[in-house]
Design a binder for these strands. Sequence first.
RNA 1: UCCCCAGUAGCUCAGUCGGUAGAGCGGGUGGCUGUUAACCACCAUGUCCGUGGUUCGAGUCCGCGCUGGGGAGCCA
Length: 461
Amino acid sequence: MQGRTRVKEALTALSAGADMNVKGWVRTVRVGKEVTFIALNDGSCMGNLQVVAGPDIANYEDVCGLGTGAAVAVRGKLVESPASGQKYELQASEIEVIGLADETYPLQKKRHSFEYLRTIAHLRPRSNTFGAVFRVRSSLSQAVHRFFGERGFLCVHTPIITANDCEGAGEMFRVTTLNMAGPPLLDGEVDYSADFFGQATGLTVSGQLEGELFALAFSDIYTFGPTFRAENSNTPRHAAEFWMIEPEMAFADLMADAALAEEFLRYLCRHVLDQCREDLEFFNQHMDPGLIARIEVVADASFAMMEYGEAVERLQAAPRKFEFPVEWGLDLQTEHERYLTEEVVGGPVFIVNYPKEIKAFYMRQNDDNRTVAAMDLLVPKVGEIIGGSQREERFDLLLERMAEVGIDPQGLRWYIDSRRWGSCPHAGFGLGFERLIMYLTGMENIRDVIPFPRTPRHAEF
RNA sequence: UCCCCAGUAGCUCAGUCGGUAGAGCGGGUGGCUGUUAACCACCAUGUCCGUGGUUCGAGUCCGCGCUGGGGAGCCA
């Protein structure tokens, strides 16, 4: 007998009777005089395989002494379980102890706080919750690529190291090989012309600008990669390193953009409902009792759409007080967004056509001269989950807008060139991957949906 | 960065009016059992975050610092 059978395959076998090898980590051991039970997990699914060992196996004493966390290989026969609680169990004929775990193993067979588990991020994937989180994360990641692949979108890997420092999308991490203790100086300032790239560089805060260039060659593209923000944000929704999905479509306007965002989000909801059911039920039971119902609503509903101007009117007419003022021209706060999606609409809603003063320079100016073709998708419990826009494709207007907000066109010559030759209407959006995972699992802290999260003062592991 | 809350056994927490510290889980030992994060009995657990102060006496009150969490801002 060769190979290794995964716990998931064993538990879902069509019938009992097969001999198999199963390898994994011990979750609990229950020792008896005549028989010992081991709950074995290999990460392939939420459930454990019950291994039954009798005194007849060679190293029965060692097996009885196993602790939570040990790695073992079990050879045995899959049999119908005589007791309730599981359909099958593995009647062991041989148990090899591969890696011991003594009583100092930090994961106990009890509930731990998420705060504590963050301090042992190297071990928490062996817990039920984090097993489920990272199975869902992996499955969603693959679903993202499948969604775009099925629709003919080109996957583009935009650069991680960049010299764009004028996107205004947040503070950048500096990338340098200069000696920090004594950098070369020019007129009292650090001389980046002596640096590795001959100029100041940092980690990307967005792949959008490069993505646009590829959309103007391949029509429909997307990026899915890491993004870095050096903001000192201490909240459950922000990390210094996170993953972002940014599709971009040529010959598309804001409505086409919103249509894609809606199709995309509904596809991903349907995906976890169909493909991650066991893990989702775990979250629904332990984390967020309304989770599955909420995802089902989004998977089936069509999303509402509301003009920014109407949103402001609705907020001003709201029978409740907000902490922050509501007035045409001001940005919507989290409390406003949640009121709109939870109370006014009761489901996902696009807010479109924002005042140009509160949005980025690359968004397309509308004919009213005071709004831009921007959209935010708001969902209950989270607020903004997708932000996108139609881009300003008109050369003169783009330059005009850059001058207004004080961006030096020289640093973005390559971007402006795309409007010089063969420019066309195009649109795209950005979705924070971790926020999607939070939305679809009910996990409430971004640090608990990233394997080894990076936040201010935290880069361990 | 601002505001609020918390820090006590390996983990989760209790600790009253200021009087030298407890429970559950985990661990150890034994018992029992086709068991289900088993059950029963016994045993051991401590820089009460650090620091300075008030006090006869501080886990408890006060100042400062550190760490963690929540809210806000920034945003995805």
